[in-house]
C-alpha cells in the first residue's frame, strides 16, 4: 500500500470536483472514491490500485431505498448489500436481486459492501491481483498471463486475445436481468445509463471496464416496475458458500399459463461482463415451458463460448445452470 491523501466530502458536488482531477476513472486512476472499501482497500494492499487520493463518499446522501412514482425502486449507491437484500420491496418484487446478493461474499462483507461499489468490483483473476505477473488489465500492454495459465475461474464469453477476466459479481447479474439503469452525476451533469450499456467488453483495452469518466459518481440504481412475476438466481460453485460463481444465472419472466410472455436471461461467472443473453431470450420468448426449449435456450446462450485451457467445463456447467434456473423460475409461484 502506498501513501495517499484522504478526504471526506459531504456533498455530491464536492465529490465530483475531487474526482474530476483524476486522469482516468479506470485502472491506474490516481483518485478513487471509496465506499465499503471491500474491493478497493484489498487491491490497494496488493499494490494493484495505487491512488494518490482517496475520496470517502460515505457522508454523501446516497443510502436510501425508495419506490418511484411509476412503481419502480431507486436504490441509493451507498445502500449496503445486506440492507438491499432484506428490503421488503426487493423481497416482494425483485427477489432475484435478493437471492443474488445473499449468494455473494459473507454476511460481514455484505454489511460493508455498497450497491455502487458492487457495480465496480474488479475481476478475481489471480494474475490481475499479483503485481509480479504481466496483466493487460492492470498494466496495459504488458500481456495476459491468464491465457495459458491458471484460468479455471475466468470467462468463456466476451473474451479477447488480450483479456479473459470474468466479472465476478452476483448483484450485477440480477440487475442485468432486471434491466436496471444507473444514475450518474459528473462534471457534465446527470445521466442515466442502462446497465447493459455500462460495461465494456475487454477488446484491446481491458483496463477500461465501464463508461465512467473522471468525477462520475454513481448516485443510484433504478429498477423499473416489476415485469416478471417469477424470477430466480442460481449460483454454482465448488463449495456451498463464500465463493465466487463458476457459473450463475438470473431469470426474470412472466408466464401466461404455460406460455412465456416476457423473459430476461443474464449469466454470471462466464462473461467478461455481467452477461445478458439475448440469444436465450429469443429462443424462450413466446414459447411454452418445456425442458426441450430450455435446453435450446442454453445452447443458444453458450453458442459463442470460447473457453481457455482450464475452463472448458464451464460451457456445459453454464448450460445446466441456465436450464435449472429456468426450471426453478417457471415452477415458483
Amino acid at each position: 500500500m502506498e501513501t495517499f491523501q484522504f478526504s471526506r466530502p459531504t456533498t455530491i458536488g464536492q465529490a465530483i470536483q475531487l474526482g474530476a482531477k483524476a486522469s482516468t476513472a479506470q485502472q491506474v486512476a490516481d483518485v478513487r472514491f471509496v465506499a465499503g472499501g471491500t474491493t478497493l482497500v484489498d487491491l490497494m494492499k496488493l499494490n494493484v490500485e495505487r491512488p494518490r487520493q482517496l475520496v470517502d463518499i460515505n457522508l454523501l446522501p446516497m443510502e436510501k431505498i425508495e419506490t418511484t412514482a411509476e412503481g419502480g425502486l431507486v436504490i441509493g449507491a451507498l445502500a449496503r448489500n445486506a440492507d438491499v437484500a432484506r428490503h421488503p420491496v426487493v423481497l416482494r418484487d425483485y427477489a432475484v436481486l435478493s437471492e443474488a446478493l445473499l449468494s455473494g461474499a459473507s454476511p460481514q462483507l455484505r454489511n460493508m459492501a455498497t450497491t455502487g461499489g458492487n457495480l465496480l468490483q474488479r475481476t478475481r483473476c489471480v494474475y490481475f491481483r499479483d503485481t509480479v505477473h504481466a496483466c493487460n488489465k492492470r498494466e496495459p500492454g504488458s500481456g495476459c498471463s491468464a491465457i495459458g495459465g491458471h484460468n479455471r475461474m475466468l470467462a468463456i464469453l466476451g473474451t479477447s486475445k488480450d483479456c479473459i477476466a470474468s466479472n465476478p459479481s452476483d448483484q450485477n447479474v440480477a440487475l442485468t436481468a432486471l434491466e436496471a439503469t444507473i444514475q450518474v452525476e459528473g462534471p457534465r451533469g446527470k445521466r442515466t445509463i442502462p446497465i447493459n450499456d455500462f460495461y465494456l467488453l475487454p477488446g484491446s483495452t481491458p483496463h477500461r471496464e465501464t463508461v465512467l469518466e473522471p468525477g462520475d459518481v454513481i448516485v443510484s440504481v433504478t429498477l423499473p416496475p416489476p415485469r416478471g412475476v417469477k424470477s430466480h438466481y442460481l449460483k454454482l460453485r465448488d463449495r456451498a458458500a463464500y465463493e465466487f460463481a463458476l457459473a450463475s444465472a438470473a431469470i426474470v419472466l412472466r408466464l401466461n399459463g404455460k406460455k412465456i410472455e416476457h423473459v430476461r436471461v443474464a449469466m454470471g461467472g462466464v462473461g467478461t461482463r455481467p452477461w445478458r443473453s439475448l440469444e436465450a431470450e429469443h429462443v424462450l420468448q413466446g414459447r411454452t415451458v418445456e425442458m426441450e426449449t430450455f435446453r435450446r435456450a442454453a445452447e443458444a446462450a453458450l453458442k459463442d463460448a470460447r473457453p481457455a485451457s482450464e475452463n472448458g467445463f464451464k460451457v456445459e456447467l453454464a448450460k445446466r445452470c441456465l436450464v435449472r434456473a429456468l426450471v426453478t423460475a417457471t415452477a415458483t409461484a
Binding site: V126, R129, H150, A241, E243
Partner: peptide
C-alpha cells in the same frame, strides 16, 4: 498461483 483463501478453497460451515 492460488496462494490465497479465495483461490485455495477450504470447506466453510455451509
Amino acid at each position: 498461483i492460488n496462494d490465497n483463501y479465495a483461490d485455495y478453497i477450504v470447506p466453510t460451515i455451509a
